[in-house]
Design a protein around this nucleic acid. Structure first.
Lengths: 193, 193
DNA sequence: AAAAAAAGAATGAACGTTCATTTTTATTGT
DNA sequence: ACAATAAAAATGAACGTTCATTCTTTTTTT
């Protein structure tokens, strides 16, 4: 028990270090030695927890993606109305992107570069299913535009990634009013007239 | 003249090779030797055209960003109405992202990772000025919502990046109808009611 | 023939990974 | 409860490879 606990701590430390270093330097410029140093571990120890560097970053990706979707769907239940469900999920996603921006930035980098291998990407996509289900229900009820889920996502959810990025760069600051504006924009772009 | 011409061809070949290899493998997994091979050039020759690897990727970024904005603003003049101007620009951007997807993907990767250094990123941002000017005009005329340009961009332009990515992955296909839908979404999210 | 451009081989540094060893933890016999 | 011993976890140094960059030589251009 104590021994297992210790192992999990070390694994978490390695994943945390990976996120921080990859965010700041990119995958190509983060040597295993630096990850080890930041996690207070010997380089060789990494290989007790992960097969190799690729495996480490794949597992980190899935870990963070899981956190993300748990966070997003935490307050949602499928007994909610479509409109309420969407609002709840959207605002949780906004929260995550703005409060857990280290994690969110890591995901953005993974989703826009070839550092994660295809199977791990697929694995990550599965976790968004509840949102897609909600949209299907909304379409059946005639509340949500009958268009591809990709278009819905592009217009309702993806803008948050851009805003997070801009905020991270210090380009501007998202306050409560702007979040509310953005939410209205999101809902307007998916609801049927 | 012939000599200069030859040099420009070689430079272009190097930039083209960089785009293709970085798209497929990421910056960290594209050695200079492979770039040289794909451009039919010796590794040493790269250093006649660029200071080092970082300089090569910075210059490539600025090159592609310049192409992008020239393409976007090609049919736009500031004598157009705000609405028409926006439509023209938006549709050119959509065209670029869908037809020149190699270039667009390279930009997406650069904008979501730390591979490009800050001065070069700043340099790239400048080129979007005409769109920001158009929005300012639209706000003064009361046609466009009075909100941060970042929010306008997030909801009107950025979704195209996501759609391009999805299309590139083969996840779905953007046809004329969907482009038109997307454009309406974009305009609705920025026009004042 | 001089200068510029290009090439290929060479170099040194950095990296991912492994190996031999030590340290820590768990198990057993008394 | 405690040594003795086995197993597991962790380490630092070392290895082989790869890579960006440079050096020397050859080719092309002026």
């Amino acid at each position: 028990m104590a021994q297992l606990q210790k192992s999990i701590d070390k694994r978490n430390a390695l994943i945390k270090a990976t996120i921080e270093l990859v965010n700041n330097n990119g995958f190509h410029a983060t040597p295993m030695s630096k990850i080890a140093k930041m996690a207070n571990v010997s380089p060789a120890t990494i290989y007790l927890y992960f097969e190799n560097k690729q495996d480490l970053v794949n597992k980190t990706y899935i870990d963070v993606k899981t956190q993300y979707t748990h966070y997003a769907f935490d307050t949602y239940t499928d007994t909610m109305s479509v409109e309420q469900g969407f609002e709840v999920i959207w605002k949780r996603i906004a929260d995550f992107k703005l409060n857990e921006s280290e994690n969110a930035m890591f995901l953005a980098q993974c989703d826009n570069t070839p550092i994660i291998d295809e199977p791990s990407l697929q694995e990550g996509i599965k976790h968004l299913q509840p949102l897609l289900d909600l949209w299907e229900r909304g379409k059946q009820e005639g509340l949500i535009k009958d268009m591809s889920n990709y278009l819905l996502y592009a217009y309702a959810i993806n803008p948050l990634s851009f805003l997070m990025m801009a905020q991270k760069r210090g380009a501007f600051q998202l306050d409560r009013t702007q979040i509310e504006d953005a939410y209205q924009s999101a809902w307007n772009s998916i609801k049927s007239k």
